[in-house]
Write a protein that binds this DNA or RNA. Structure first.
Lengths: 107, 107
DNA sequence: ACAACACTTGGCTATTTTGCCAAATGACAT
DNA sequence: ATGTCATTTGGCAAAATAGCCAAGTGTTGT
């Protein structure tokens, strides 16, 4: 693994790490159709507003979402919609796992 | 967020979490073309064999790779090749970030 | 200027992840 | 059976992550 490869992999891992949290995945799903302010998003999650805010800024930091201010509110929107389509392959893994698990139980 | 949604998101996040590490991404790239034994993989990474082994079993646990024994060696192979194609979208994020960063420097 | 609102940031603790070493397992050869 | 090779597992310490509360920032309305 060369040093350049190392850097490339670090960068990729950073994006994946940003995605790898249930609350953040939920937030991204909410943003898929349209932008939302933090207040909209907080309602659906059972976590402190500050926690949601931190999740959002983490996603922003990773370049996955962006924000704009409109009066008192801050609206977040998805920058890279393909990320959510991408999850179809994750779903493939889960289905495969489910089948394997079922087979193990039957056996 | 319903409880069922919660479970679904947890499962997805677990797979993403397994992917979200530079060494593990490298291991997956090695396995993309063909299966490899641990000894093959250890050579390319500057980490202890035991560390590599733990990364591999984590990936296996997540259902991303599988293993078979052949004599003294254990061969790992990629179970869900689409995961690596999927990363093209991660690359999109990174390119976008690079452009944004460049623009900020210029400004 | 001041209060109210929407959000972010700092600070803290609890939990999880990482990676090394050393010890254990499993397969094969002698 | 004993030794050796390939790999896994246990145990531990260091680092990163998560989430709450409280305090701070920025905006609007009075």
């Amino acid at each position: 693994m060369t040093e350049q490869e190392q850097l490339r992999l670090n960068a990729r891992a950073a994006v994946l790490k940003a995605l790898a949290h249930p609350t953040r995945l939920w937030l991204l799903e909410q943003l898929q159709q349209q932008e939302h302010c933090v207040c909209d998003l907080t309602d659906g999650v059972n976590a402190d507003i500050s926690t949601v805010s931190k999740h959002l800024s983490l996603l922003k930091q990773a370049g996955i979402i962006s924000s704009r201010r409109d009066g008192k509110q801050i609206y977040y929107r998805l920058e890279t919609p393909c990320l959510l389509n991408m999850l179809s392959c994750v779903e493939t893994v889960l289905e495969k796992n489910a089948r394997t698990h079922a087979a193990l139980i039957k056996a």
